[in-house]
Protein backbone atom coordinates (compact mmCIF):
# COMPACT_ATOMS: atom_id res chain seq x y z
CA UNK A 1 0.00 0.00 0.00
CA UNK A 2 1.33 3.41 -0.93
CA UNK A 3 0.52 6.02 1.67
CA UNK A 4 2.43 9.23 2.36
CA UNK A 5 4.45 9.62 5.54
CA UNK A 6 2.70 11.49 8.34
CA UNK A 7 2.19 15.24 8.12
CA UNK A 8 0.05 17.97 9.61
CA UNK A 9 -2.74 19.32 7.42
CA UNK A 10 -4.32 22.72 7.32
CA UNK A 11 -6.68 24.44 4.95
CA UNK A 12 -5.88 27.99 3.86
CA UNK A 13 -8.75 30.47 3.73
CA UNK A 14 -6.78 33.27 2.06
CA UNK A 15 -3.56 33.73 0.09
CA UNK A 16 -2.20 35.87 2.93
CA UNK A 17 -3.06 33.12 5.40
CA UNK A 18 -1.31 30.49 3.27
CA UNK A 19 1.81 32.64 3.08
CA UNK A 20 1.71 33.32 6.83
CA UNK A 21 1.53 29.55 7.44
CA UNK A 22 4.44 28.92 5.07
CA UNK A 23 6.50 31.51 6.92
CA UNK A 24 5.58 30.19 10.33
CA UNK A 25 6.20 26.54 9.47
CA UNK A 26 9.42 27.00 7.51
CA UNK A 27 11.02 24.60 5.07
CA UNK A 28 8.94 21.58 6.14
CA UNK A 29 5.75 23.12 4.76
CA UNK A 30 4.41 22.66 1.26
CA UNK A 31 1.41 23.99 -0.59
CA UNK A 32 -0.95 21.33 -1.95
CA UNK A 33 -3.36 22.17 -4.78
CA UNK A 34 -4.54 19.36 -7.08
CA UNK A 35 -2.00 17.08 -5.45
CA UNK A 36 -1.52 14.95 -8.56
CA UNK A 37 2.21 15.61 -8.64
CA UNK A 38 2.90 16.06 -4.94
CA UNK A 39 0.97 13.08 -3.51
CA UNK A 40 2.65 10.54 -5.82
CA UNK A 41 6.03 12.04 -4.81
CA UNK A 42 5.03 11.76 -1.15
CA UNK A 43 3.94 8.13 -1.55
CA UNK A 44 7.40 7.37 -2.94
CA UNK A 45 9.05 9.38 -0.11
CA UNK A 46 10.67 11.61 -2.74
CA UNK A 47 8.87 14.48 -1.01
CA UNK A 48 8.42 14.45 2.76
CA UNK A 49 6.68 17.62 3.87
CA UNK A 50 5.84 17.91 7.56
CA UNK A 51 2.96 20.27 6.91
CA UNK A 52 0.59 20.54 3.97
CA UNK A 53 -1.29 23.75 3.36
CA UNK A 54 -4.34 23.03 1.19
CA UNK A 55 -5.18 25.97 -1.08
CA UNK A 56 -8.11 24.35 -2.91
CA UNK A 57 -10.60 26.71 -1.25
CA UNK A 58 -8.86 29.81 -2.66
CA UNK A 59 -11.25 30.43 -5.56
CA UNK A 60 -9.59 33.82 -6.06
CA UNK A 61 -6.61 31.96 -7.55
CA UNK A 62 -8.67 30.28 -10.27
CA UNK A 63 -9.16 32.42 -13.40
CA UNK A 64 -8.08 33.07 -16.97
CA UNK A 65 -8.49 36.71 -17.97
CA UNK A 66 -7.23 39.43 -20.24
CA UNK A 67 -5.74 42.33 -18.30
CA UNK A 68 -4.43 45.14 -20.49
CA UNK A 69 -1.70 43.71 -22.70
CA UNK A 70 -1.36 40.52 -20.70
CA UNK A 71 -3.25 37.29 -20.22
CA UNK A 72 -3.34 36.28 -16.56
CA UNK A 73 -3.87 32.75 -15.32
CA UNK A 74 -4.43 32.07 -11.61
CA UNK A 75 -2.17 29.40 -10.11
CA UNK A 76 -5.13 27.26 -9.00
CA UNK A 77 -6.61 27.09 -12.53
CA UNK A 78 -7.09 23.41 -13.31
CA UNK A 79 -5.97 21.61 -16.46
CA UNK A 80 -9.59 21.07 -17.54
CA UNK A 81 -10.17 24.83 -17.41
CA UNK A 82 -7.03 25.54 -19.44
CA UNK A 83 -8.16 22.93 -21.96
CA UNK A 84 -11.66 24.34 -22.37
CA UNK A 85 -10.91 28.08 -22.26
CA UNK A 86 -11.79 29.71 -25.59
CA UNK A 87 -9.94 32.87 -24.54
CA UNK A 88 -6.74 30.92 -24.02
CA UNK A 89 -7.20 28.87 -27.21
CA UNK A 90 -7.69 32.06 -29.22
CA UNK A 91 -4.50 33.71 -27.99
CA UNK A 92 -2.29 30.70 -27.27
CA UNK A 93 -3.59 27.53 -28.93
CA UNK A 94 -0.57 25.56 -27.73
CA UNK A 95 -2.20 25.32 -24.30
CA UNK A 96 -5.04 23.24 -25.77
CA UNK A 97 -2.54 21.17 -27.79
CA UNK A 98 -0.73 20.37 -24.55
CA UNK A 99 -3.78 19.91 -22.34
CA UNK A 100 -5.25 17.33 -24.71
CA UNK A 101 -2.24 15.10 -24.00
CA UNK A 102 -1.47 15.87 -20.33
CA UNK A 103 -2.30 12.74 -18.32
CA UNK A 104 -6.00 11.87 -18.79
CA UNK A 105 -9.27 13.83 -18.42
CA UNK A 106 -9.87 12.57 -14.86
CA UNK A 107 -6.44 13.72 -13.70
CA UNK A 108 -6.98 17.00 -15.55
CA UNK A 109 -10.03 17.64 -13.37
CA UNK A 110 -7.69 18.09 -10.39
CA UNK A 111 -4.20 19.12 -11.49
CA UNK A 112 -3.41 22.85 -11.66
CA UNK A 113 -1.08 25.07 -13.66
CA UNK A 114 0.61 26.29 -10.48
CA UNK A 115 1.22 22.77 -9.26
CA UNK A 116 2.58 21.68 -12.63
CA UNK A 117 5.03 24.57 -12.83
CA UNK A 118 6.14 24.24 -9.19
CA UNK A 119 6.69 20.50 -9.59
CA UNK A 120 9.24 21.51 -12.26
CA UNK A 121 9.51 18.01 -13.64
CA UNK A 122 11.52 18.22 -16.87
CA UNK A 123 8.92 16.09 -18.63
CA UNK A 124 6.03 18.30 -17.56
CA UNK A 125 4.36 19.89 -20.61
CA UNK A 126 3.18 23.24 -19.23
CA UNK A 127 6.71 24.29 -18.30
CA UNK A 128 7.75 24.09 -21.96
CA UNK A 129 4.48 25.78 -23.01
CA UNK A 130 5.00 28.69 -20.60
CA UNK A 131 8.63 29.05 -21.65
CA UNK A 132 7.73 29.26 -25.35
CA UNK A 133 5.12 32.00 -24.84
CA UNK A 134 7.55 33.90 -22.58
CA UNK A 135 5.29 33.72 -19.56
CA UNK A 136 6.19 35.31 -16.25
CA UNK A 137 5.59 33.75 -12.86
CA UNK A 138 4.13 35.94 -10.12
CA UNK A 139 5.55 34.82 -6.78
CA UNK A 140 4.08 36.20 -3.57
CA UNK A 141 5.67 36.28 -0.14
CA UNK A 142 5.13 38.24 3.05
CA UNK A 143 7.04 41.18 1.57
CA UNK A 144 4.86 41.41 -1.56
CA UNK A 145 5.09 40.16 -5.13
CA UNK A 146 7.95 39.56 -7.47
CA UNK A 147 7.74 38.64 -11.14
CA UNK A 148 10.17 36.12 -12.61
CA UNK A 149 10.60 35.13 -16.26
CA UNK A 150 10.33 31.43 -17.06
CA UNK A 151 14.07 31.28 -17.92
CA UNK A 152 14.78 32.19 -14.29
CA UNK A 153 11.89 30.18 -12.82
CA UNK A 154 13.35 26.75 -13.53
CA UNK A 155 16.48 26.48 -11.42
CA UNK A 156 17.01 22.72 -11.68
CA UNK A 157 15.18 19.41 -11.59
CA UNK A 158 12.18 19.87 -9.27
CA UNK A 159 13.59 23.22 -8.09
CA UNK A 160 12.04 26.60 -8.91
CA UNK A 161 12.58 30.23 -8.01
CA UNK A 162 9.74 29.99 -5.47
CA UNK A 163 11.54 30.38 -2.13
CA UNK A 164 10.74 29.45 1.43
CA UNK A 165 7.66 31.29 2.66
CA UNK A 166 6.55 32.09 -0.89
CA UNK A 167 3.95 30.76 -3.29
CA UNK A 168 3.25 31.01 -7.01
CA UNK A 169 -0.01 32.92 -7.45
CA UNK A 170 -0.28 33.77 -11.14
CA UNK A 171 1.16 33.20 -14.59
CA UNK A 172 1.21 36.22 -16.91
CA UNK A 173 1.67 36.02 -20.66
CA UNK A 174 2.31 39.14 -22.75
CA UNK A 175 -0.26 39.63 -25.54
CA UNK A 176 1.30 40.69 -28.81
CA UNK A 177 -0.17 40.85 -32.33
CA UNK A 178 0.78 38.42 -35.10
CA UNK A 179 1.30 35.46 -32.80
CA UNK A 180 0.85 31.74 -33.33
CA UNK A 181 1.83 28.78 -31.17
CA UNK A 182 1.83 24.99 -31.04
CA UNK A 183 2.86 22.11 -28.76
CA UNK A 184 3.99 18.73 -30.10
CA UNK A 185 4.50 15.63 -28.01
CA UNK A 186 5.27 11.96 -28.53
CA UNK A 187 4.26 9.55 -25.76
CA UNK A 188 4.37 5.78 -25.40
CA UNK A 189 0.65 5.50 -24.73
CA UNK A 190 -2.29 7.84 -24.06
CA UNK A 191 -1.76 9.83 -20.90
CA UNK A 192 1.90 9.02 -20.36
CA UNK A 193 4.72 11.46 -19.78
CA UNK A 194 6.40 12.66 -22.96
CA UNK A 195 9.25 10.76 -24.58
CA UNK A 196 9.96 14.22 -25.96
CA UNK A 197 7.89 17.39 -26.38
CA UNK A 198 8.42 20.74 -28.08
CA UNK A 199 6.59 24.05 -27.62
CA UNK A 200 6.90 26.91 -30.07
CA UNK A 201 5.48 30.41 -30.32
CA UNK A 202 6.17 32.86 -33.15
CA UNK A 203 5.21 36.46 -33.72
CA UNK A 204 5.19 37.43 -37.41
CA UNK A 205 5.55 41.05 -38.58
CA UNK A 206 5.83 42.05 -42.23
CA UNK A 207 6.49 38.48 -43.34
CA UNK A 208 9.39 38.04 -40.89
CA UNK A 209 9.69 36.35 -37.53
CA UNK A 210 9.73 39.34 -35.18
CA UNK A 211 10.07 37.16 -32.10
CA UNK A 212 10.02 33.48 -31.26
CA UNK A 213 10.08 31.18 -28.26
CA UNK A 214 11.03 27.49 -28.39
CA UNK A 215 11.31 25.09 -25.45
CA UNK A 216 11.70 21.33 -25.04
CA UNK A 217 10.30 18.96 -22.44
CA UNK A 218 11.55 15.54 -21.27
CA UNK A 219 14.93 15.72 -23.02
CA UNK A 220 17.13 17.12 -20.24
CA UNK A 221 17.32 17.60 -16.48
CA UNK A 222 15.02 20.64 -16.73
CA UNK A 223 12.84 22.28 -19.37
CA UNK A 224 15.20 23.41 -22.12
CA UNK A 225 15.00 26.95 -23.49
CA UNK A 226 16.34 26.81 -27.03
CA UNK A 227 17.93 30.25 -27.12
CA UNK A 228 20.31 29.36 -29.96
CA UNK A 229 17.40 28.30 -32.15
CA UNK A 230 15.53 31.48 -31.23
CA UNK A 231 18.52 33.60 -32.31
CA UNK A 232 18.67 31.77 -35.63
CA UNK A 233 14.97 32.33 -36.34
CA UNK A 234 14.58 35.93 -35.23
CA UNK A 235 14.38 38.45 -38.10
CA UNK A 236 14.13 35.81 -40.82
CA UNK A 237 11.27 34.90 -43.15
CA UNK A 238 9.67 31.64 -42.00
CA UNK A 239 10.38 28.60 -44.16
CA UNK A 240 10.45 24.84 -43.75
CA UNK A 241 14.20 24.88 -44.41
CA UNK A 242 14.73 27.37 -41.60
CA UNK A 243 12.59 25.32 -39.21
CA UNK A 244 14.60 22.21 -40.07
CA UNK A 245 17.76 24.10 -39.12
CA UNK A 246 16.14 25.04 -35.80
CA UNK A 247 15.31 21.34 -35.37
CA UNK A 248 18.98 20.47 -35.81
CA UNK A 249 19.87 22.94 -33.06
CA UNK A 250 17.21 21.36 -30.84
CA UNK A 251 18.74 17.95 -31.41
CA UNK A 252 22.20 19.26 -30.53
CA UNK A 253 21.22 21.45 -27.56
CA UNK A 254 19.10 18.96 -25.63
CA UNK A 255 20.62 16.48 -23.20
CA UNK A 256 18.33 13.47 -22.92
CA UNK A 257 19.16 10.37 -20.93
CA UNK A 258 18.36 6.81 -21.94
CA UNK A 259 15.48 5.21 -20.01
CA UNK A 260 12.42 3.04 -20.51
CA UNK A 261 11.03 5.67 -22.88
CA UNK A 262 13.88 5.36 -25.35
CA UNK A 263 17.59 5.70 -26.13
CA UNK A 264 19.41 9.01 -26.45
CA UNK A 265 19.65 9.12 -30.25
CA UNK A 266 15.90 8.49 -30.59
CA UNK A 267 15.10 11.31 -28.18
CA UNK A 268 17.44 13.69 -30.00
CA UNK A 269 15.73 12.73 -33.26
CA UNK A 270 12.32 13.46 -31.70
CA UNK A 271 13.55 16.82 -30.35
CA UNK A 272 14.46 17.81 -33.90
CA UNK A 273 11.29 16.57 -35.58
CA UNK A 274 8.95 17.97 -32.90
CA UNK A 275 10.68 21.37 -32.89
CA UNK A 276 10.32 21.58 -36.66
CA UNK A 277 6.66 20.55 -36.52
CA UNK A 278 5.82 22.93 -33.66
CA UNK A 279 7.43 25.89 -35.46
CA UNK A 280 5.67 25.01 -38.68
CA UNK A 281 2.25 24.72 -37.05
CA UNK A 282 2.78 27.84 -34.90
CA UNK A 283 3.64 29.83 -38.02
CA UNK A 284 0.65 28.49 -39.97
CA UNK A 285 -1.56 29.60 -37.07
CA UNK A 286 0.07 33.04 -36.92
CA UNK A 287 -0.63 33.44 -40.64
CA UNK A 288 -4.12 31.88 -40.34
CA UNK A 289 -3.08 29.18 -42.79
CA UNK A 290 -3.49 26.14 -40.60
CA UNK A 291 -4.69 23.17 -42.64
Amino acid sequence: MQTPASFEYERATSVEGAIASLQRLGSGARIIAGGHSLLPMMKLRLANPEHLIDINDLAELSYIREQGDELSIGALTRHVELEKSELLARHFPLFRDAENVIADPVVRNRGTIGGSLCQADAAEDLSAVCSAVKAKAVIRGAGGERVVGMEDFHIGPYVTAVGEGEMLTEVRIPLRPGGGSAHEKVERRAGDWAIAAASAAVWIEGGKIADVGVALGAVGPTTIHLSRAEELLRGKAPSEGLFAQAGEIASADCSPSADGRGPIDYKRHLASVLTTRALSRATARALHQEA
Binding site: Y9, G35, D54, D57, V106, R110
Partner: peptide, 16 residues
Protein backbone atom coordinates in the same frame (compact mmCIF):
# COMPACT_ATOMS: atom_id res chain seq x y z
CA UNK B 1 -20.04 15.88 -10.11
CA UNK B 2 -16.57 15.56 -11.63
CA UNK B 3 -14.77 12.22 -11.90
CA UNK B 4 -11.58 12.18 -9.80
CA UNK B 5 -9.05 9.52 -8.79
CA UNK B 6 -9.60 8.89 -5.11
CA UNK B 7 -6.14 7.36 -4.61
CA UNK B 8 -4.61 10.76 -5.27
CA UNK B 9 -6.83 12.93 -3.09
CA UNK B 10 -6.55 13.21 0.68
CA UNK B 11 -9.76 12.52 2.55
CA UNK B 12 -9.05 15.73 4.47
CA UNK B 13 -9.36 17.70 1.23
CA UNK B 14 -12.93 16.47 0.70
CA UNK B 15 -14.70 18.04 3.66
CA UNK B 16 -17.32 20.38 2.24
Amino acid sequence: GQPVKSCTILAAMCEG
